[in-house]
């Protein structure tokens, strides 16, 4: 329980929020960690935001839920408004500045800003914005090591078309490079 990390991913439906969380859960599982992934469920999904909570631990996970995630990855403004106050003290906020037009109010958090929609458009891969963000986040924090995530890329996307895997890998690597330069 001591090294347990709970990471919330939130945004509009269609921004790849749920699959981002699933990718992280898969990647962490493949490095031998205990993991869980819970999607938001019910009315929230219709209210404009989709979110999921990923828990990663080296021990058995008791609660896949929490009031206070250590990290919130927010892809749009309503998600920042909703979850900024919930993040654990001294936790971390990752903000997609392409879709969030204000700064966070809290001063105790590590804030990582990245304009993922612009970066995705520059690459001509508008659907890759979630993987750009995930690549950048893992490069910065090593919640799962970048090389471990890359090693398991094919396994995680098992059953998907080769082109899809390739585009996601490119987006992920673009995020890694961006984080090296900017964070």
């Amino acid at each position: 329980m001591e090294d347990e990390k709970q990471i919330l991913f939130a945004g509009f439906g269609g921004q790849g929020v749920l699959s981002m969380g699933q990718f992280l859960a898969y990647a962490a599982m493949n490095t031998g960690k205990h993991v869980s992934w819970v999607p938001s469920y019910g009315a929230e999904m219709r209210g404009g935001t989709a979110n999921c909570l990923v828990t990663i631990s080296s021990e058995e996970i008791y609660s896949p839920l929490t009031e206070h995630p250590l990290v919130a990855v927010v892809l749009n403004r309503p998600s920042l408004d909703k979850f900024e106050t919930k993040v654990k003290p001294d936790g971390c906020l990752v903000i997609n500045t392409s879709m969030v037009d204000r700064d966070p109010k809290r001063t105790d958090l590590m804030v990582l800003k990245i304009p993922v929609n612009e970066l995705a458009e520059e690459m001509g891969n508008t659907r890759g914005s979630n993987m750009i963000l995930l690549g950048a986040y893992l490069e910065k924090t090593s919640v799962v090591k970048v090389e471990d995530a890359l090693q398991h890329f094919e396994v995680i996307y098992r059953g998907k078309k080769e082109k899809v895997i390739k585009r996601n890998r490119e987006a992920f690597l673009a995020g890694v490079e961006w984080a090296k330069k900017n964070w």
Partner: peptide
């Protein structure tokens, strides 16, 4: 519970 139906775990 419905949540358990949607919970992903190894």
């Amino acid at each position: 519970e419905g949540t358990l139906g949607n919970l992903m775990e190894p």
